[in-house]
Design a protein around this nucleic acid. Structure first.
Lengths: 333, 333
DNA sequence: GAACTTTCTTGGCACGTGCCAATCGCTCCG
DNA sequence: CGGAGCGATTGGCACGTGCCAAGAAAGTTC
């Protein structure tokens, strides 16, 4: 139904090669033919078939981005970074969401392999490195956001999660807190690293760390877990809560405020990521800043660099440094 | 570099047609060949080339979803609805975000035309119906979420925005509010319909409606506009605020609470959409429920129905009805 | 005006797949 | 024993594109 180069060529009274040249090497065309082709394309509303182009080219100038849970705000920032760098370098980018489902993650990888994307940026759920190395053998490179076992063909971009956790812990100790509750998702390695950093800070002090698990790191989880905290006798409540991301912190804060608990006087709160929501809460949230946008850009750039020069080794990644953004949820006003 | 049917066939010692049959008509194969092909595919890690498939098939079994602003929570719900119905019916779905940029919206449409998707669901920024009718001529059907001029080939799914606005207005009048401030984005027609509904409710009463414009309907916008409200002398402040979506309401609420304004005693708040965030705010937010998930499903289903039977006329769409969800931001506790 | 260069245009093939019509090897039956 | 019937397998083409080698047309030089 849609027009093809042949139709355009027939209408313009030239060969299909001329039409192809018009599209891909305009400079070689004579003025007269160019005009005829231009008119014919216009008249038919011709749009080149992208599948045929890709088939011919052997691969699409496309990258893919696979995210653990696209609805968390931190991942918006990450994806904007990847998106921007891809666009700037002239690549298209396909998004997909694993939705915390390992089988969906695998299906997404399969799908992108079938579509012959040239590279993948992935914030993974499970250990995907063996699969990514297999893809590398077939010419599809990849960059993982987060820590991975050493690999000759799979790149990674790192953030100092443990250092960030330590910063949060040191800050809470500095403002005199001693009963610190950590909220994290034990299935996500980054979350565990943040906890480890907190423990680093607390070791050799008289402070204590307790841990509650939250499955999905969502605001809803925060609201629920806060009920458990409120149910504790006042004497057993923590005087500080450090959550593995801002959304959980905000859920906790909301529930505490609803019940008249004062933040930070009764309980201080620290989040992680420093997404936009952190400064949009009723009590602005102290948070460990993780530069999602820049991390996304770095991942995209590393991937594009690998693709530009496949022989070059993987650059040793310097982890992005953590930075604490202090707001009123820990120091009051 | 990646294996093709030919490679598989060579390794299995059969013809490429047999491999093709193994993939597409497994029942016609003998047990012996099937096993050989299976082994060869396994050994080579063969993955069919999707571009070639699509080229051969003439079109991909794929739909596209184009959203005005993918970062607003309401659009998450909408997209989940479209996504689910697409998956259930065996279609793949490509996402894209116009990011409130008309030229990006046009580029996205062009891109999906080039990729020969069979249908498009779009929540548009500008008037795209002429372009969509052009696409329909070339075999690409579409469904618009929102009101459109009557069209023989472009479907639409409607929500009763005006009725929702009226519900909000009537509720605010019923609880005795008389100075109502509306916050909306004048460039979005749905926002204007909600305002019109509010005016419908207020006409012939002694209540007054004032309007402030917010450009993007984000929480950040809400925080800023609340500063303007706080700057007014107390006597000139509204006693109720109705915003065109929940995110703006939540921004406003946050700023008011920070400054000690009581919600709802001093100012009552009503949002629109009833996204998850509405019940996650410190004072749970009264909101006009717009069933984004169901609207998304309806749009996807309407599109798939059109594609299944292109001769059938477009069904006259029944608008989804608005429903007011009353929470503490208007009635207190 | 013949030989040569330059500019523009073209036919044909290949990319990987799916489908159709044709062929092959067998069995069964008259 | 020959042919019909059947299931399993295959060769070849077409999808729309981009590229290349080669051809045609136009211009230049002696």
């Amino acid at each position: 139904m849609p027009a093809s180069v042949k139709d355009v060529a027939a209408l313009a009274g030239v060969s299909s090669s001329t039409v192809s040249n018009y599209l891909n090497h305009p400079h070689v065309l004579g003025e007269a033919s160019a005009a005829k082709v231009r008119d014919a394309i216009e008249q038919l509303g011709y749009v080149p078939n992208e599948s045929a182009r890709q088939l011919r080219a052997g691969s699409s100038k496309a990258l893919a981005l696979i995210l653990l849970d696209a609805w968390l705000p931190y991942f918006h920032e990450l994806s904007r970074g990847v998106e921007d760098v891809a666009r700037e370098e002239g690549w298209s980018l396909f998004f997909s969401n694993s939705n915390r489902d390992a089988s969906l993650e695998r299906r997404n990888i399969d799908m992108f392999e079938a579509h012959r994307v040239q590279g993948i940026v992935i914030y993974p759920l499970e250990d995907v490195v063996p699969r990514l190395e297999q893809l590398a053998d077939r010419g599809i490179r990849s960059v993982v956001v987060g820590p991975i076992p050493d690999s000759p063909t799979v790149g990674s971009v790192l953030f100092d999660d443990r250092g960030g956790g330590r910063l949060a812990g040191e800050h809470l100790l500095a403002i005199g807190r001693r009963r610190i509750l950590f909220l994290g998702a034990p299935s996500v390695s980054q979350s565990n690293d943040r906890l480890q950093g907190l423990r680093d800070a607390v070791v050799d002090t008289d402070a204590a760390v307790e841990v509650f698990d939250v499955p999905h790191l969502t605001t809803e989880d925060g609201l629920e877990i806060a009920e458990r905290i409120l149910a504790l006798p006042a004497a057993e409540r923590p005087d500080a809560i450090f959550a593995a991301n801002d959304m959980v912190s905000i859920g906790v804060m909301t529930q505490l405020l609803r019940h008249g608990i004062r933040v930070p006087e009764d309980i201080a709160l620290v989040g992680f990521d420093d997404v936009a929501q952190a400064h949009q809460s009723v009590v602005p949230l102290t948070s460990v800043r993780q530069p999602g946008y820049e991390i996304g850009r770095a991942a995209g750039a590393a991937l594009i660099r690998q693709l530009a020069d496949p022989t070059a080794g993987l650059p040793a990644p310097t982890p992005f440094a953590a930075e604490l953004v202090v707001r009123e949820s820990t120091i009051g006003r």
